[in-house]
Design a binder for these strands. Structure first.
Lengths: 277, 277
DNA sequence: GTGAAAGCGCTAACAC
DNA sequence: GTGTTAGCGCTTTCAC
C-alpha cells in the first residue's frame, strides 16, 4: 500500500526531518533591536525573501548585550545559516565560526577586522548624496549630527561623514560640522528631567549639543538617525526657526518621514541565495 | 569516565533534544507585518519575554495572505506554542487547532466568533481616553478618521469608536465623525499621482476623504493610525491650519510622535507564562 | 518498483 | 551513582 493521501492530512515533522537531513530550513537572525524602523524593515525583507524559498526566520534581538550567546543558541538549534547585524568590535568570535564553516552574512554593520559577507547601504555614497542635496539647495554651513558616545564613531557613521564631507570639500564651501557626543548631556546632567520616550531623549540630547553655541551656527543639519532629524525639526520650530526655509534638515535611511538615501532593503535577498542557503 | 567538561566545549543539539522531549523551546509568531511601529514593538516585547525564559521566536509575516499556511508550517516545526495577530474572519481554522490542543494566544485582534486567549489594548478605553483628552482641551467637533475599506470596520476600530463616542455623547457635545473609507480615493482616481511611500498614500487618502467638504468641518481629528495622524498634521499645516491651536489631532498606539493611549506592550508577557509556555 | 533497516543526537527509562 | 538501551520521526541506503 502507498501513501493513500497519507491518512488524508499527514504533515511531516520538520524537526525530525531537520535532524536526519542536517538541514532545518531555519535561518538565525540577530539584530540589536527592532523598534527603530530600519531593522524592522530589514527584518521584514529578510522574512519575505526566506519565505519565498520556504525557510523560516529564527529571530533574536541582542539589545547590545548577548550577541555571542544568542548566536551560539541559534547554532545549537541547527540553523542553516546566520544573518547578523553585529555590534561586535573584534573579529575573533566570528572568525571562529567562519572557520567552522558556518554560513554567515552580516547586515548593516561591518565587524571591525573581519573579512566576511556584508549587506549594507553604501554609507559613503549616501552621505555624499545628502550632501549634494543640501548643497544644491544652497545650504552652506551644514552640521553633521551624530549621536554616538563611543570613543570612535562606528564605521557606517564615519563613512557617511566622509561622503558628506567630500561634497562640501570639493565645492570648497564652508562647512561647519560638529560630531557631538550628545548623549553625554544626559550623563552630565542628572538633574535634567529624565526623558521617558526616545523623542524626549533626542530633544535632551539636542539641548546638550547646542548648549555651547549662541543661536544656531549652521544653516542645515545632517542627522544620523531620522528619528533624531525629526526631533531637530521639532526643536528648531519650537525656537521659531522655519524648516526648511531657514535651516534644512536631512536624516538617513531610518524613517519614512524625511529625506532618505537608499532603500537598502531590496539588496538583502541576493546574498542569501548567493551564499547557497 | 565522566563529562570531563565534555571535550571542553560541547553544545547539545537542541533539535535532537526537541525531537526527543517533544518540546523545542520554539514559539511561532505570526504578524501581518512589522513595518508599522506597532507590531515591531509587540514583537520586540515578545522576543524579550521569551528570551527571558530561554525560548526562541520563529517569526513569520503573513502579509494578509498566507496566515493558515504559515501557522501549519510553524506547527510542522513543532513549536511549543503560537502567538498570532490574526486577520482571519472566521473561527473554524483556529477552533480546529484549539481542539487539537495547540497552545494559542492571539494578540491585538480578536478572531470573530472565536473564544480564545487574547492580549490586546482596551480599544474602548483608549478611545474614551483620547475622547476625554480632546474634550478637556475644548474641542467640540472631532472627526473620527479610520482608514479601512472593509465592509465592516474591524473590531478594534469599532471599539475605539464606541469608546470615543461615549465621551462625546455623555457630555452632550456636538460630534461630527466621519468614518471614511479613504483608501477608496485611490481606486476611484487612477489618474492621481501614484503614491510611492506610505506617507504619500496617507496624504492621497486624506484628500479623498476631505474632497466632499468645504474647508474643514471639524476642529479635532482622532486618527486610527498614528502614521495617518502625522499625515493629517502635515496636510493641515500645508493648508495654513495651525495644529493644535486650530485643529487638534490625536492618533492611536502606533507611533511615538503623537499622543497615545496605552503602552500595550508590558501586558504581552503575562499570558505567555499563564498559558504555561 | 516496494519494503526493511539503520541512524541523525538526544534523553528517559531501566539496569547494574 | 554510572552504563546501557530504546526510540522520538524522519530519510537514506540497501536489499528484494
Amino acid at each position: 500500500m502507498l501513501d493513500i493521501a497519507e491518512e488524508a492530512g499527514y504533515r511531516p515533522n520538520r524537526l525530525a526531518r531537520g535532524l536526519r537531513r542536517a538541514r532545518t530550513g531555519l535561518i538565525g537572525v540577530v539584530v540589536p533591536g527592532i523598534e527603530g524602523q530600519f531593522y524592522a524593515r530589514v527584518l521584514e525583507g529578510i522574512e519575505k525573501a526566506l519565505q519565498d524559498v520556504d525557510h523560516r526566520v529564527l529571530l533574536t534581538v541582542s539589545r547590545g548585550e548577548q550577541e555571542h550567546e544568542l548566536v551560539e543558541s541559534l547554532l545549537d538549534m541547527q540553523v542553516d545559516g546566520l544573518i547578523v547585524a553585529s555590534e561586535d568590535d573584534g573579529p575573533e568570535f566570528y572568525e571562529t565560526l567562519l572557520a567552522r564553516g558556518v554560513p554567515l552574512v552580516f547586515i548593516d554593520r561591518e565587524v571591525p577586522g573581519l573579512h566576511a559577507d556584508l549587506v549594507a547601504t553604501d554609507h559613503f555614497a549616501g552621505g555624499a548624496l545628502l550632501g549634494e542635496h543640501l548643497r544644491e539647495r544652497g545650504f552652506r554651513k551644514p552640521a553633521f549630527l551624530s549621536m554616538t558616545d563611543r570613543p570612535r564613531p562606528i564605521g557606517c557613521i564615519e563613512d557617511r561623514w566622509c561622503g558628506f564631507r567630500s561634497v562640501y570639500r570639493n565645492a570648497s564651501l564652508l562647512h561647519h560640522p560638529f560630531m557631538g557626543s550628545v548623549k553625554r548631556y544626559l550623563r552630565e546632567r542628572p538633574d535634567a528631567p529624565k526623558p521617558e520616550t526616545f523623542s524626549e531623549l533626542c530633544l535632551a540630547a539636542l539641548r546638550g549639543a547646542l548648549e555651547p553655541f549662541q543661536g544656531f551656527p549652521f544653516d542645515a543639519v545632517f542627522a544620523q538617525y531620522d528619528h533624531f532629524a525629526l526631533a531637530m525639526i521639532h526643536f528648531l520650530r519650537s525656537h521659531g526657526i522655519r524648516v526648511p526655509e531657514e535651516v534644512g534638515v536631512v536624516g538617513f535611511d531610518d524613517h519614512d518621514f524625511t529625506e532618505y538615501a537608499e532603500p537598502s532593503l531590496t539588496t538583502i535577498r541576493q546574498p542569501l541565495l548567493e551564499i547557497g542557503l
